[in-house]
Design a binder for these strands. Structure first.
Lengths: 370, 370
DNA sequence: CCCTTCGCAGCAAATTTTTGCAATCAAGAC
DNA sequence: GTCTTGATTGCAAAAATTTGCTGCGAAGGG
């Protein structure tokens, strides 16, 4: 929305100078150029011609990583839905921005040194700005950063970043964003129910020593699952003890390491995991220890990634209705993008989907009973 | 490079009309608008300010799909490398564009009908144009469409599309592009060697009836693997019979279906697969039939996706050096993007990586021998 | 057949962006 | 201390883009 004049005013320089920076012409002091670029990052320059051409039919999809197969699965489902509605998708892996931030300077190409240095990265936020500058109309955040609760809870600077985006009129939708405080539509699974159902399933099979292979403690979804796990346990008259919870990074190795700790200490007969991806690490670890699954250890995953049915034993898991959630998220976004704007409901819209227990081969009654 | 005036001249209309089309203002005949849009597709409008702002630090990554985990793995490796060199990545799933093309019109938002319709999709090409319009500096194609040999081989219109891009000065690099005819740097694994090594491994274990669970016959990599398979077989004095090859779509289900056909007819004691993803389907199918792997059937995959080590039995596979290939591809692209252009070697640059046999648990001597 | 009406293209005025040029300023030479 | 040199900036003229308005020509009614 800002023309050359706006940028110039904000940067305290003349219009000419902004023009020169934009066109990378010589004769602009490096310091001045930086000031202009800083303003440009805040309010990207939009030539009138392009500004009006904004109906680009492109939306941005932000996922935290790609190694966990849920994210490619979500990405593909979102893309497919968007494509059906006539939108192209641009996918961003926000984790990679963090790498850039810490990347060694000497490995950069000469260009990065002699020319305008690439602005220092800020992770997800940086990607959002980049996408905005590339003319996306709106974006879907899958498991956004906000999902990580700030343990110190002193300042809470994170929400303000999304709030600012919101104030700038950027249309966005969260998937598994778990953020009651923000006025953003959120499409989510009931994580707590998922934890509850998984635990209940194991209790019904006769397990009494049920561990939780959890993601990092700062992850809100993991906390919610834990609450569901605890609720089911207590409902069955069993204590939900902290020693039965092992935290580890979200990845197959993390799952393996976490379950190893549990097996070395409290010896659970069954575990629930924060994700199928971690569950695969658990399966592997059990295999390496010569433990049979489900004979010696029952395992419940979460997500129902496409490959869950293809491991051996096939993974019992709590399915997120990925297709439906993706459809709901994209529909809501497109709805808000609708220029004929009859429906522009700005309310805090949240859709909670029920996870569904999919029983496969990785769960069975504990050996002592069977 | 073309301003409003150039577009106007090419379309045979006045500058005002072009401006109106770009700004989606009323008062332009649909026919005229189409003519202008057609010209615009050929030579995109570049406002002077933005055209020069080209050094965006953004590259495009095009993958055909995300369900096969190799592609997310490649994408992540490419992104990571690009990030280290100071570039952001935009990931596109070219398969989804095909969906848009056939998408039902009534499901589109009202905007798509009343306003300029989203230009009809052309798959990969459309994405490339879109990325170009979004200011990417170059792109990496992973397993590009060109990889599919046109069986009729009458017209060959596909190469011309890449050639055109090349002529437009678009910088690009192929990963597993397998295209000797084009003057594009290509980073690739030796597919034929992969097929050869896999087959040789099985021959050494004592197998004599070795099937090939292959991707579609139009896929060039699958053809090359088959050539390697045939070479190894013939070297061992065995015939490479066509009945031992089963074609199916690239996916876990495809792998399952293909191996089912082989098991119902020629009863191989071992199979090699076009991808780990297909191999997982093979594992599943064997499991469902009560066949033990590797006892009754040995399985060799391709790619060495991260999850290959996590299935049970862990998959024996031929590893693509994904990290190294990604690094080579990105380095080559960035190299060509270098504005100080000392190194602008425009030669046809191809790097072939050797696949590496990773023996895990899914292969063993055939039962009759062991 | 003529007149009215309306959509649409182009003209020209208004606005925005680019660029030649001269003014300003800092640093170093004399 | 003053002059020269070169970098940097803003002014204003030139170029490009947007938009109000006029007029052309086709369609439909009288």
């Amino acid at each position: 929305m800002s023309g050359l004049a706006d940028i110039a005013r904000a940067a305290g320089v003349s219009i000419s100078t902004v023009s020169r920076v934009l066109n990378r012409r010589a004769g602009v002091n490096e310091e001045t150029r930086q000031r202009v670029l800083a303003v440009l990052a805040e309010q990207p320059y939009t030539p009138r011609g392009l500004g009006a051409l904004q109906r680009t039919g492109v939306i941005g999809l932000l996922v935290p990583e790609l190694s966990n197969p849920v994210f490619p699965a979500f990405a593909e489902a979102l893309e497919t839905r968007a494509a059906r509605l006539g939108y192209s998708s641009l996918l961003c892996n926000t984790r990679s921005a963090a790498i850039r931030r810490e990347g060694p300077a000497e490995s950069r190409p000469p260009a990065a040194r002699t020319r305008t240095p690439v602005p220092t990265s800020l992770g997800e936020e940086e990607y959002v700005r980049m996408l905005l500058a590339r003319g996306v109309e709106g974006m879907v955040f899958v498991s956004p950063e906000i999902t990580n609760v700030e343990v110190p809870l002193g300042e809470a600077p994170k929400p303000s970043y999304y709030a600012k985006l919101l104030a700038d009129g950027v249309q966005m939708v969260f998937v598994n964003g778990a953020t009651p405080s923000l006025d953003v539509p959120d499409v989510t699974v009931d994580e707590q129910l998922a934890g509850y159902l998984a635990t209940q399933h194991l209790l019904e099979l006769g397990h009494r020593r049920i561990g939780f292979v959890s993601g990092p403690s700062r992850s809100l979804p993991s906390r919610l699952k834990r609450a569901g796990w605890a609720a089911a346990l207590e409902e069955a008259g069993l204590p939900a003890e902290a020693e039965f919870v092992a935290h580890a990074p979200f990845a197959a190795e993390g799952g393996g390491a976490a379950v190893a700790r549990l097996l070395d200490t409290v010896r659970p007969t069954a575990v629930i995991c924060s994700s199928d991806h971690m569950a695969m690490g658990v399966l592997r670890q059990a295999h390496q220890r010569g433990l049979s699954v489900p004979g010696d250890l029952s395992v419940v995953g979460f997500d129902d990634i496409p490959l869950a049915a293809y491991c051996s034993p096939a993974l019992t898991t709590l399915a997120q209705p990925i297709e439906e959630m993706a459809a709901a998220a994209v529909d809501e976004l497109v709805h808000r993008l609708d220029p004929d704007g009859r429906h522009r409901t700005n309310g805090n819209y949240t859709r909670v989907f029920r996870p569904k227990l999919v029983v496969r081969e990785s769960t069975a009654p504990p050996r002592s009973i069977s």
